[in-house]
Amino acid sequence: MSNAAVTISGMNKYYGSFHALKNINLTVQKGERIVICGPSGSGKSTLIRCINKLEEHQQGSINVLGTELDDNVGNIDQIRREVGMVFQHFNLFPHLTVLENCTLSPMLARKMPQDEAENMAMTYLERVRIPEQAEKFPGELSGGQQQRVAIARALCMKPEVLLFDEPTSALDPEMISEVLEVMVSLAKDGMTMLCVTHEMGFARQVADRVIFMDQGEIVEQAAPEEFFGAPKNERTQNFLNQILSH
């Protein structure tokens, strides 16, 4: 058993005739924290959505935690239980309370008893520092609080890998930091993370590797010091100039 959490090799994805992802090769080790950045439409979200098969790839292979994402029906739900995801727009279930949001999947997909699931959910809600909101509905919370609930909900499945799809870009500026703090503390605990984000400060602080994507390709990947200090590719330089200039 290798130590790789995610192995992607020679992967291509098309939307009809549009070539969305071009020959992606990427290996993520267990415990590794990766930040993916790039201009909008570069395919970074599509890439991480392929890892839990919210999007289907057409060529190449994706191996997650030793399971091949192929045509086999049984694999998909299996993988999704081990891979958590946090969305840009939180996607909390508005008809369920915060606590029910967190316990739903452990109880249904993992057959966990209700009290056990609730205890665990409360632990994670404390971890994201909003246990007092457990009985409220998502619509009654602020954006930052909702996103923290979404993180707790993902953690309740005790995932091996956590995917973040621009978790802070739908938030008001004053709420970004509370979400980032939670993410930093997760990173320190050794969670395997793939993060699509424009928060370069976060990337500097926690990333083991920063990946720059453009037009469906991985253009450059390097450790943060190297990536921010001496980007090799011209496109990376342009992007960093734009994003850091203000």
């Binding site: 919210l54 996607n91 739903l104 999947s105 997909a109 993902a154």
Partner: peptide
Amino acid sequence: EEAAKALGLT
């Protein structure tokens, strides 16, 4: 639906 899928619900 995506969030439900990502949580591994059938």
